[in-house]
């Protein structure tokens, strides 16, 4: 085959023939055209895939954005940090593209990831001694909602383990079995944190306890 090919290209004289040169160019052109087509198809497919991903990210943001943001804020007390956690949670979601049995399962997964990311950030914040902005405290103070300011200060004073359980119980309305799954704890541990958190809040808030 090589011999035949060479003879076709170079002829008997050993100099490349006009027909051979033409065939070489034609083959080259066909290959270039083919690669362009493949490349264009790939780009189209990639663009469609990216659009679908962006749409999905938007749906997840709209459905669970507030829940993730509030959980992260309950840990970190900073809107910037909470937004970072929301963003990183969505990135994890899009990268892993997990399958879920239903919407509850999906939300639990997202909150689980957000809680872990927030706890990691909490450790980092401790190291860097971050200046706590706490926009929620500022907003409640500006709006002169003393009772809610008092409640938030009391919640902030709780240990993290109690605060996360209190948040998922009161904000998300989860039962202890569900909180246990989200936080990767035993239900009895969650119950214990919830009970202690409530007692601690009661001590701090005294007569204001019913606000919870």
């Amino acid at each position: 085959m090589i011999k035949v090919g060479c003879r076709f290209l170079y002829g008997r004289t050993g100099v490349i023939s006009e027909a051979g040169l033409f065939a070489l160019f034609a083959a080259h052109r066909r290959e270039v055209d083919r690669l362009w087509t493949v490349s264009a198809d790939k780009e189209k497919a990639n663009a469609a895939f990216s659009r679908a991903k962006a749409e999905r990210a938007g749906e997840v943001f709209d459905a669970y954005g507030n829940s993730i943001l509030r959980l992260a804020y309950a840990y970190l007390h900073s809107m910037d940090d909470a937004e970072d956690i929301l963003q990183d949670t969505l990135i994890r979601y899009m990268q892993k593209a997990p399958e879920f049995e239903d919407a509850n399962h999906e939300k639990a997964w997202l909150l689980h990831v957000a809680a872990n990311l927030a706890k990691n950030r909490l450790d980092y914040n401790k190291v860097r001694q971050a200046d706590d902005m706490d926009e929620l405290a500022e907003t409640l103070a500006e709006e002169k909602k003393e009772d809610l300011s008092f409640l938030w200060e009391a919640v902030k004073a709780l240990p993290v383990k109690q605060r996360e359980v209190i948040h998922l119980f009161y904000e998300e309305g989860y039962q202890t079995a569900e909180i246990a799954q989200i936080l990767g704890e035993r239900e009895s541990t969650v119950r214990s944190h919830l009970r202690r958190g409530r007692i601690r809040l009661k001590e701090i808030l005294k007569d204001e306890y019913d606000y919870v």
């Binding site: 943001f61 954005g65 509030r70 929620l136 409640l151 904000e171």
Partner: peptide, 16 residues
């Protein structure tokens, strides 16, 4: 009250 307290922590169109 807890939910009322957390209401100001919400996503915004700019954040989205």
């Amino acid at each position: 009250k807890y939910r009322e307290m957390m209401e100001p922590v919400a996503v915004t169109p700019e954040m989205r």
